[in-house]
Design a protein around this nucleic acid. Structure first.
Lengths: 240, 240
DNA sequence: AATAAACTGTTTATGTCATACGCGATTGAG
DNA sequence: CTCAATCGCGTATGACATAAACAGTTTATT
């Protein structure tokens, strides 16, 4: 109950924190930390050891304070994660890119993918929960929509295309998280054993495996899906 | 450390459980439950109250046993969730569908999407962790690959197309989880307030909002992305 | 039939987590 | 100078997964 209960006040606090709109207090001791510093520490921790390593206790240890001290700067863990996600700064400037919408949105996608690949925990930090967008995330959204401005698509369609592309990137990130080289081989072996026993029930799968369809991942995982999606978008544009 | 440590034995146990390959013991009292019954109970719980409601304690309560009793049937929570996911049975038969690959894979996608929409927790149950596929999941994979058999694409390409489509479905499910009608309006209002203060930094976004690009979701969320992707796949086929 | 082994469900304990509550210390506003 | 606001912290609390030890039950072996 309390978990899902969100008052409007809570939401305002959450947004204000993200947008740096909190007035600083006049009385009392000088704070030794700041929300940004806490978020930065948590981010380094996530980069180094993954999202699971980010507990309030651990972040506090890293900063040399007690766990409860963090709550003076951040309302709770959810808001801390919001801050971590938004702390990557704004999207790169794509306005100089020549050649129309396709090179521009491609460059956007590559930049976004680079971010997800460098910081895989962002996926877990933004999955399965209401996303509260701060200036950083909004700038990425803005950049993508700007890249699609001259397509002739409607605003709704442009938004849909954006969702499709970010979705593709997130899917790749997901597949990457699951991927662990030494583990991979072992699973493949065990699954092959199982299939040897039950393979008859999955003819298309057996054919695909025999044809190498489950071999090692591509050099450039983004390429295939992005091409397919953008070809489809081109068709959509042509139809209008 | 212990969390990520998986021996080969563990993996074999996990797969055997999923494939129902465990020999039943000869001595000792008759078990009052079974792995399948535990999984079924957990699944009902997840359907009714979401994945967060599925704790070992809660599932045990539901079955009228102590929490630890479950460990006689399931090695741990992760394996229980594997079972829950795989308990949906096999994919529908698509071989009767006329008109080539496109109607077939479309039917597959709609069936898959229906499953995700009816049981949104499946997304959370399969995200961010190594997927152990049982007979149920493999049958869905097999059906999708079979639908793409006559495209002339390579096995690798067919697998990639599959990943693209399942990814699209999962993205929609993700967006659906985040969506909560009463909540939605409130967030939109608060975000609009923020944008009124900082909107100048996001011109393309402001244009999109003014043009209705962030209005209510589509009647058929699957349609747009699926059409774009399959058009792209058609282009790919034509190029070969 | 007697015994031992295998298996049952349970109680109790451990460790991790987020976070509510209240304390004494600090400090700027009046 | 005084005091209320604010600081950082210690100490709960309750949820969670699961390890360990135990007592009762059933069957295979002797």
């Amino acid at each position: 109950m309390a978990k899902t209960r969100n008052t409007t006040k809570d939401k305002q606090v959450r947004l204000a924190l993200l947008w740096g709109e909190n007035e600083s207090p006049s009385r009392g001791p000088k704070p030794s930390l700041s929300a940004a510093r806490v978020a930065e520490t948590a981010r380094h921790l996530a980069d180094a050891e993954g999202l699971d390593a980010v507990s309030m206790q651990r972040v506090a240890d890293e900063l040399g304070v007690s766990a409860m001290a963090l709550y003076r700067y951040v309302p709770g863990k959810a808001e801390l994660i919001d801050l971590m996600v938004d702390s990557f700064g704004t999207a790169p400037d794509l306005t100089d890119i020549e050649g129309g919408w396709r090179p521009r949105i491609t460059a956007w996608a590559r930049a976004c993918w680079a971010l997800y690949r460098a910081h895989p925990w962002v996926l877990g930090a933004t999955a399965m929960r209401r996303q509260v967008m701060g200036p950083g995330q909004l700038s990425w959204l803005d950049a993508a929509l700007a890249a699609l401005a001259d397509t002739g698509l409607t605003p709704v369609q442009r938004h849909d295309v954006f969702l499709l592309i970010i979705g593709h990137i997130r899917n790749l990130a997901q597949q990457m998280v699951e991927h662990d080289a030494d583990d991979e081989a072992e699973w493949n072996q065990l699954t092959a054993d199982v299939l040897a026993r039950h393979g008859g029930r999955f003819p298309a799968l057996m054919t695909a495996i025999a044809g190498g369809g489950f071999g090692p991942a591509h050099d450039d995982p983004l390429e295939f899906g992005l091409t397919v999606i953008l070809d489809g978008v081109q068709d959509l544009i042509d139809r209008c």
